[in-house]
Structure formats: structure tokens, C-alpha cells
Amino acid sequence: MLADATTLLASLAAAVSISMTWSFFSGAKWNPSGRHCYITGGSTGLGLALAVLLTRKGADVSIVARNEEQLAKALAQLEAARVTPNQILKSYSYSLNTCTAAKEALEVACEPHGGETPDAVFLCAGKATPGFFIEETEESMKKGMDNTYWLAAWSAMAASQRMIRTKSHGKIIFVSSVLGYMSMFGYSTYAPGKHAIRGLAEGLRQELLLYSIGVHIYFPATIFSPGYVEENKTKPRLLLEMEESDGGVTPEQAAQGLYKGIQRGDFHITDTFIGDVFRTSTRGATPQNGNFLKEAVYGIIGYIALPFWRRDCDQKVVAHRPAHEEYLTSAGVLSGGK
């Protein structure tokens, strides 16, 4: 029985490999050279890695973030990656959590380009603060949506309105997460916003067909970024233990995955095995990536494997009940201390 299952999985893997090779050599690829790429969250992590990659591809790059010191260091990295003397590389310090600020930041970034709208807007800004739902507050719940959904939505609104007004046929690229396909305990202030970003991107993909504006959304798994280090500081112990075996990628690897997805023309962009499995298992009415064979193979793997993964996670959570009750008591939660 085990041998038969192994043979089946090997055959499926071979089919995926052939399909992916075929997809690589087909279709026109997006070329960022000479294009203006606007990146939110561009001072660290995925945003910075993407900014460096696009600079090396010959793009004009504008990065936006709040921390001026980090922006200065990031801009120095872009300058080091410059390939032509006429590339326009700029940084802008803005907090993008209001509609007004998002529009202002975009307008300022357009000025060095003669007022032209960016060719591609990458919405990489975001932050996770994991914790138990029972310990969250009204303020932390709202902040969670501000730091995920609204941070992307306001800039997407500013970009789409400007592209339509100036008749620009650019791209808007959202960044969600594998947690935008599913969720786990500990992510009650993060995953809802990532799911909401998916909903927004899927609606805009269709609406912006009216104006020949492209929309993509990226669903990365774990990225070993400065943000990941920070979120681990608040993660419940059980969640840290459950994620110990998870694979992850560097910001540079994630940037490459996102870039290749755009080159392929994918709407939902995934660049890890687990991402492909969740994407095909929860695709709904979104366009397929590549050909039917590859999608079907990942879908079959998800149909077989995900119920076992979910059961394993549930069992670990249930086994953690005694330790969790001790934690709640010591934290004062059960006595109404929080």
C-alpha cells in the first residue's frame, strides 16, 4: 500500500515538473527595465529585496516606509544595485494607514517622473502580531486590520484611481500570505486582513479589466525577514513549536518567486509547495496558473494530504490544553485580570 502511494506521488511530481518546464518556455514575460516600480514597505524584508531585484533589472524604483533611518540604508542598497546612471531611485517616509497619506505618498513619488503614474505598484507593507484571541482587545483587533488590510487597500485605491485618471495600463500587486488561504490559532489579528486582501484583489482583478490594468496577488509562506523576528516575540509557545518544522525562504528568494509569478502572468502567485497545494485546494473561481495538469496534480495532493495535516494540528492543540490553562491562570486571564 505504501509502495503504491509512493509511486503515485512520484508520478504526480514528474507530471508537475514537466508542466512547469512547459510553462517556463511559453508566453511573453513582463520586463521592468525602464519602468517605474512603486513599493510600499520597501525599507526591509520582501519589499527591500524586491526593490533591489527590480533595480538590478533596470527599473526606476520608489520605496515607501515610515522609518527614515531604515529608508536611508535601503536607498544605499538600491544605489549599489544601480545598472544605469539614469535610473531614478527614490525613498519616501510616509505612514500609509490613511487614504489621504496613501494618495499623498503616491503623488510625491510621481513628481520625479514628470507626473507619470507608476507602471507597477507593489503593496508589500504589513505586520503580524500573533497572540491568543482571548487576550486581544478592541484596539489590537483594529490595529491588526490597519496593519494588513487597510495598509494595502488605501494604496490600492490611490493607485487604481490614478491609473484610470491618467489612462495608464499598469499593474497592482498585492501581498497576502499562505494564511490568506487558511488560518491557524494565534493569527486572529493577522489572517483576517490577509483574507480580506484576497477578496479585494479578486474583485479588482475583474473590475480593472475595464481599464486594462493588471492585478496580481502573492501568497508567500514563511519569510525569514526582520518582521518575522519581531512576530516571533509575541507568538504563543505552542505556535512556535508547531512552526518549527515549517520551511521558509529568505526575502531575496521570496522576491524572486513574486517576480517570476508576474513574468508568468499568474493572478494568484505561489512559489512554495505548500502554497501551490493550498492555492489549488481553495482556488474558487480564480484563474488557473499554468496548465490544467499541474493544477490538477496539486489539487489531488491537497485533497489527500490536507485532512491529515489539519488533524495533526488539531491533536497538538488539544494536547496543549493543560499547559495552556496554566498559562491563562498565571497571566490572570481566567480571573478576569485581562
Rank of each mutant, 00 (worst) to 15 (best):
A76M: 13
T137V: 14
N97P: 00
G126V: 02
E135R: 11
E104A: 07
S95E: 11
A80S: 08
L89H: 10
P130A: 13
D119H: 04
Y92M: 09
V83H: 12
E116K: 14
T129F: 05
S91K: 13
F132L: 15
A74Q: 06
K103G: 04
P130M: 10
P112L: 05
S91Q: 13
A105C: 01
A102T: 03
Y94G: 04
T98G: 12
E138T: 14
A120M: 12
A120N: 01
G115Q: 02
A102N: 02
D119N: 06
A128H: 05
F132V: 11
C110K: 03
A101E: 10
S95G: 05
N86G: 10
Q77W: 01
H113S: 00
C110V: 00
E107L: 09
K90T: 05
A80F: 06
E138R: 14
P130E: 08
S91L: 03
S91N: 13
G126Y: 02
E116A: 13
A76I: 10
V108T: 03
C110Y: 01
C99Y: 01
Q87S: 12
K73Y: 03
Q77N: 06
A102S: 04
L89M: 08
N97R: 00
L106A: 06
E139T: 15
K103T: 03
A101Y: 01
I88W: 10
A74D: 09
A102L: 05
P130T: 07
S95W: 00
S140C: 14
P85V: 07
E138C: 14
E136K: 13
A125N: 09
M141A: 14
K73Q: 11
K103W: 02
N97I: 00
T98K: 12
H113M: 05
A128G: 09
G115L: 09
N86M: 13
T84G: 08
A105V: 05
F122I: 12
Y92P: 09
Q77E: 04
T117N: 08
D119E: 07
A125S: 13
A109G: 09
E139H: 15
E116W: 04
A76E: 15
Q87R: 12
Q87T: 09
I134G: 12
E79Y: 12
N86T: 14
A109E: 07
G114E: 13
D119G: 03
H113L: 03
L75R: 11
S95C: 07
I134P: 08
F132M: 13
V83K: 14
E79L: 09
K73R: 10
G115M: 03
L75F: 09
I88Q: 14
P118R: 01
N97K: 00
A80T: 07
S140L: 15
T100N: 07
E111Y: 00
E135V: 04
H113W: 00
A81M: 06
S140D: 15
P85I: 10
G115R: 02
H113P: 04
E116G: 08
A128F: 05
S95A: 02
V121M: 02
Q77L: 13
E116R: 11
R82Q: 11
E104Y: 00
A74F: 07
S93T: 06
G126I: 03
M141G: 08
I134R: 14
I88R: 14
G126L: 00
S140H: 15
E111M: 02
E136F: 12
N86F: 12
H113I: 01
L96F: 02
E111L: 00
